[in-house]
Design a protein around this nucleic acid. Sequence first.
DNA 1: GTATATGAGACAAAAATGATCTTTTGGGTT
DNA 2: AACCCAAAAGATCATTTTTGTCTCATATAC
Lengths: 132, 132
Amino acid sequence: MGLTRKGEYAIRGMIYLARQEPGKLILVNEIAETVDVPQSFLAKIFQGLTRLGLVRSSRGAGGGFTLARPAAEISLREVIEAVEGPICANRCVLDDGFCNRSAHCTVHPVWHRVQDQVGAILDGVSLAELSK
Amino acid sequence: MGLTRKGEYAIRGMIYLARQEPGKLILVNEIAETVDVPQSFLAKIFQGLTRLGLVRSSRGAGGGFTLARPAAEISLREVIEAVEGPICANRCVLDDGFCNRSAHCTVHPVWHRVQDQVGAILDGVSLAELSK
DNA sequence: GTATATGAGACAAAAATGATCTTTTGGGTT
DNA sequence: AACCCAAAAGATCATTTTTGTCTCATATAC
């Protein structure tokens, strides 16, 4: 019913990046240490964030990670969905196969309302705000 | 990030009960079959619901389950929290030990807003409405 | 007493979570 | 070119949670 550690860690790491000089490359090692998460795990998480275009990475000596866009233009929702998958109150809203009763299910509209509300809140918060 | 099957099943079962004549005892077997969930599992789930006072049970021949209160007075939230635990966006909001940074954490207020919104929506929906 | 139904608890397979380690790839530096 | 540093990719593994099942105890109607 809540965020997993992956999500929590990703958020911590991204906020740390948002606090740095824009464009400056930061070692995953440094991030992991200061936000207090296992570095190997954070490296894995940041791999995913790179693939999805939330951060840019540079290999080799002097490499590291940096935000792909200005912190003000990255929402909390983006970060969360990148690592946790889409906001979803109940699988039946996503998977059509999960419950074949979608058509006449009275709870369905409730799930949609929940998702819309949560989505809106998370959309409205940027990394820039969180880094203050 | 969403409901587990336990939650989904509990809701289906409770809605089925809400559709019956108030006070009438229904076999867990009948519920399980018509809402299409494994009976052993549903029995276990209903045990918990009984313990928490959402349904009343009667043992022995002619026994079964029935809602403990009128369907209009049982909210969707109660059902969900009974089986899934409290609505919680991120563990740090619940466990104090999870992140020791609660005091200065900028994301904390966001989690609270999310929980309040979701809680409010789920509070506002009763089994009576869902059973229509 | 017997048939029937839930209560409680142990048990187990499968999936998700949380993490580590190794190997590969690509850039800088010399 | 040779070499080192650092990230990417992927394999592996441990732990926890989910999703059930099964057995036995207990309560009740007849």
